[in-house]
């Protein structure tokens, strides 16, 4: 475990906690895309199929449980919680996320490291994670007043992706045979999707203004 990987995991964890805290305390999911949250839940469910079969470390198992638990409870909150449900802006969150699932799955069937069930599902989760943020970014662009917590949530997610790239570069130079094109390319695509958001996030931060994305 290197410092980039740890920092990446911690920003990822922080992003999820920020979101859960927002939903739990103010009982509102305004500005949050249910589509993205559902995709993340599917990402974790298909990636962590090995959670009970392969033990890597206590840290690894705990983090997997946290990500599974938090992603499904966020979806539960938005869909089922009496108050949170009311704050969900269904009419703005219109991205057809089903259209992302099939292409990702077909791509995972075609391009993978090994043609086994677990491996294809793992690859599928990587492809899906790369594009899962799209409904959230579209929703952000439509939202007139992006609240601070939502902005910080997306910022932390983007930071997590950036740190993972640094982690891969570090591991490439320090570990023998560390070459993984599938996670690298999908991870790079994912990080690039945040580039535009980051630009406006830093601009608003620099000018001490509220974050607003151009339509």
């Amino acid at each position: 475990m290197n410092i980039f990987r740890l920092a990446g995991d911690m920003t990822h964890l922080a992003s999820v906690l920020v979101l859960l805290l927002k939903i739990h305390t103010i009982k509102s999911c305004a500005g949050i895309s249910l589509k993205t949250q559902e995709l993340f839940a599917i990402v974790f469910a298909s990636r962590y199929l090995d959670i009970f079969t392969d033990f890597i470390s206590l840290y690894n198992t705990l983090m997997k449980l946290i990500f599974l638990g938090s992603s499904f409870s966020i979806v539960w909150y938005i869909r089922r919680h009496k108050l949170v449900r009311r704050s969900y802006d269904k009419d703005q969150d219109t991205f057809r996320h089903y259209f992302l699932l099939l292409p990702c799955f077909i791509l995972a069937l075609l391009i993978n490291e090994k043609f086994t069930f677990k491996e294809v599902m793992w690859t599928f989760s990587l492809y899906l994670e790369a594009v899962a943020i799209l409904p959230q970014l579209v929703l952000l662009q439509r939202t007139k007043n992006i609240d601070n917590l939502t902005g910080q949530y997306v910022f932390l997610l983007g930071a997590y992706r950036g740190l993972y790239i640094l982690n891969w570069i570090y591991r490439y130079f320090t570990e023998p045979h560390y070459v993984h094109w599938i996670p690298w390319i999908s991870g790079l695509v994912q990080t690039l999707l945040y580039a535009d958001f980051f630009y406006y996030y830093f601009e608003s931060w620099k000018n001490n203004k509220k974050l607003q994305l151009p339509a």
Binding site: D54, I56, K114, E175, H180
Partner: peptide, 10 residues
């Protein structure tokens, strides 16, 4: 195995 070192990532 060359695949498994990646599986320690989350």
């Amino acid at each position: 195995c060359f695949q498994d070192d990646q599986k320690d990532e989350l």
